[in-house]
Design a protein around this nucleic acid. Structure first.
Length: 717
DNA sequence: AGCACGCCGACT
DNA sequence: GTCGGCGTGCTC
């Protein structure tokens, strides 16, 4: 770092100890206020390292320099800045505390002028600075609570590096905003770590008891846990957390939503009583959430259950990190640099040497990869246990529907009617319908073949009721369509408004109450009485005694998406709904409206999500798709993308894919996206290269064009 | 990002 | 002769 302006030199005076205290204001008249206060310490082998400052206040004696992370999320400012510590702040300005600093001041005639106050964190106290100019003093210590502790800072740094992002951005995700009132209250006394008995249901998994034993003796077992369908997983997950606690360590579990987190929280309360764990979710409100976070940060509570943001929870002595249902998209943080809970927890497992548990009713490709690489072991039940726990799954394909007179008349296959009628005698029936916003696809009224665009073979859709069908890809209207298969010329919606179908179901069973759970109103549970429970994927209430049956009506919507994860995601959503249904042995039945020949449908019928994930993984490897390859996306105006591509010094073996035009929502100029692909193991090098290029670009003058950089983009077609 | 310094055209 | 364009560089 070069010394910028001569003016600074002028005011700073000399560096030699002899003249300490003799520094003169450089400008005659009115210069007093900038007497340079010197200091210190270190008999200076490095003359440049002396902290000097403006203004006449006395500095802290021992460690007069505070290294500060200034909370300004600019990539090229992704560095620390040194400030002088006034003697009055010596005690309070400890590493980790929040401070205010003046930043961006100019030196005018030997005076510092301007500069706006920014929040920041002290990351280190030092005897000296490697900055040659005079240091500005800390403006204020906002709070004495050391929130950005060294281990948390280290984690944030690693996450920032992993995602080619700025440290300040990650810190903002990791440290909740201050709530003064919560800080004033003392956290409860830590309670002794209790012993806990493992639940009996763990023995349904071949390696389940061994996993808990390893945890109990302080080991760090790593597993991908394929949970059996049914209501036991919250209790099982809770017992893993409690076992880590019993071994004298802390534990952290991240769940995709507040409902599932609350279930694990309740199970923990049963196991541990109150006061040994906290629930970190948005439901608690900012102040209570901060209060709980503080209890964790202060080390008085060592077990944390929460949603996404809890992935950063500074748990003392962390011994186990757990993640539930990692395929749920809410595990991806929407704020820059968009870290994914799975990656953050993997990072923590490695760096903090903890046990690891990735659980779910299905397995993601990433989960399969952890097993495939040997890093984690599978924690799965035997086939017998699967058969005992899973419901009976039956399929209705398009062809079945076409031949089915009842379906044509009532829009629902007769199998679905039969199952529903029979199941309603025994309990509630779950009806999974597509989320609003899914556009119904069209098919031939005669042979049921999907209707395709004559120009580009894209799927035909009707965007609004009574509108002209048009291609979902190229947008061309299809006024004079005829079927390529049979020559038919009448179109019909392949699934006519599943929501409406659900309403019809309700009318068909007038004495049965209909309950709905979706976007605005999500039900947590329903009772055991007969009812039709209509829910969108992800919003299915838990039935206290299990559903007697489930109808999965949204197969076409889930499988029709042009997404790498469409199959995996469809299976995930079906299995989540089906896992709420009673076992086949108790009459539990699932009807799924989807082609029985499709791979995810077969996996559901056989209840073999692990096998599905393994096959998906093999396919991804063959095609060199993520997660077998690592990818990054850069999007922005074509010129900016091109400039970036020119600037970046990519690691060996990087593929460039594109650029291709991408949709830009708010009518701005067209954007392009460039994909970078590297072989496994080169992800860190790629991130570093992209970060460097971004810094270089930002430093280069006159670059205001926005550029979006994303590691592991989830939405690559 | 702001924000100021710096070197080249139309005004009181 | 000055006010002002935004190019370039810095922020502890």
């Amino acid at each position: 770092m070069s010394q910028p302006s001569g003016k600074n030199h002028k005011v700073s005076g000399d560096e030699g100890p002899k003249r300490e205290g003799a520094a003169e204001p450089p400008e005659a008249g009115g210069g007093e206020q900038l007497a340079l206060i010197r200091e210190t310490v270190r008999k200076s082998k490095e003359p440049r390292a002396k902290p000097r400052t403006w203004r006449g206040a006395a500095l802290a004696e021992g460690l007069p320099v505070a290294r500060v992370l200034v909370d300004k999320g600019l990539v090229h400012l992704d560095q620390f800045f040194d400030y002088a510590v006034p003697a009055a702040m010596d005690e309070e300005a400890q590493p980790g505390v929040r401070v205010r600093v003046r930043f961006g001041a100019r030196v005018v005639k030997g005076r510092r002028e301007g500069g706006t106050l920014h929040d920041g964190f002290v990351v280190e106290r030092r005897t000296d600075s490697d900055y040659a100019g005079p240091l500005a003093p800390l403006a204020q210590v906002l709070s004495t609570e050391p929130v950005l502790t060294p281990p948390l800072l280290r984690l944030c740094r690693q996450v920032a590096d992993r995602y080619a992002g700025a440290l300040a951005d990650v810190v903002q995700l990791a440290v909740p905003p201050r709530m003064a009132r919560a800080e004033r209250d003392p956290s409860p006394e830590p309670r002794p770590d209790p012993a806990v008995p493992p639940p009996a249901t763990w023995s349904r998994y071949a390696t389940g008891p061994a996993y808990l034993q390893a945890l109990a003796r302080g080991d760090t077992p790593r597993a991908v846990w394929l949970a059996l369908p049914g209501p036991h997983w919250p209790r099982e997950l809770a017992s893993a957390l409690a076992t880590a606690l019993a071994s004298g360590r802390g534990a952290l579990a991240v769940l995709p939503d507040g409902r599932s987190a609350a279930r694990v929280d309740a199970a923990l309360t049963e196991l541990l009583g109150a006061g040994r764990h906290v629930l970190l979710t948005a439901d608690a409100g900012p102040e209570e959430r901060y209060r709980r976070w503080l209890a964790v940060s202060r080390g008085t509570v060592k077990v944390v259950v929460g949603t996404r943001a809890a992935m950063f929870a500074p748990v003392a002595d962390l011994g186990l990190v757990a993640l539930w249902d990692d395929g749920d998209s809410s595990h991806a943080e929407p704020h820059a640099p968009q870290p994914h809970a799975r990656d953050v927890l993997l990072l923590r497992a490695r760096e903090e040497r903890t046990a690891f548990l990735l659980g779910g009713v299905t397995t993601t490709v990433e989960g399969a990869q952890l097993v495939d690489s040997g890093w984690a072991l599978p924690l799965a039940a035997t086939r017998d246990q699967v058969r005992a726990a899973a419901p009976l799954v039956r399929t209705v394909g398009d062809l079945d529907q076409a031949r089915d007179e009842a379906a044509r008349a009532a829009r629902l296959p007769s199998l679905a009617w039969q199952v529903t009628r029979e199941a309603l005698a025994r309990g509630p029936v779950l009806v999974q319908v597509p989320r609003r916003g899914y556009v119904p696809r069209l098919g031939c009224d005669t042979c049921r073949a999907p209707a395709r665009c004559a120009a580009c073979a894209g799927p035909l859709e009707v965007r609004e009721e009574g509108g002209t069908p048009a291609c979902g890809w190229c947008g061309r209207p299809a006024a004079d369509w005829h079927c390529q298969e049979c020559g038919g010329f009448r179109l019909r919606a392949r699934v006519v408004g599943a929501r409406r179908t659900a309403e019809e179901l309700g009318r068909a069973f007038p004495r049965v109450p209909v309950r709905t759970s979706g976007r605005d109103t999500v039900l947590a549970t329903v009772g055991g009485a007969p009812a039709l429970v209509v829910a969108t994927p992800g919003a299915e209430p838990v039935a206290e005694e299990g559903y007697a049956a489930a109808l999965l009506l949204d197969g076409w919507a889930l499988l029709g998406r042009p997404d790498l994860r469409a199959a995996e995601d469809a299976l995930r959503r079906w299995a989540l709904a089906a896992s709420l249904v009673r076992p086949a042995g108790e009459g539990g039945t699932v009807v799924v409206l989807a082609e029985p020949t499709l791979r995810p449908v077969q996996a559901l019928v056989r209840w073999d999500p692990a096998g599905h994930a393994v096959r998906e993984l093999a396919e991804r490897a063959e095609l060199r798709f993520p997660p077998v390859a690592r990818m990054a996306a850069v999007a922005g105006p074509p010129a900016a993308v091109a400039e970036f591509a020119d600037l970046v010094r990519l690691p060996m073996g990087t593929d460039l894919l594109g650029p291709v035009p991408v949709q830009r929502p708010a009518g701005s100029d067209p954007w392009e996206r460039l994909l970078f692909r590297v072989p496994p193991g080169s992800g860190a090098a790629l991130a570093a290269a992209l970060k460097a290029a971004q810094v270089a670009r930002a430093t280069r003058s006159g670059n205001t064009a926005p550029l979006q950089l994303r590691m592991d983009p989830p939405d690559i077609g």
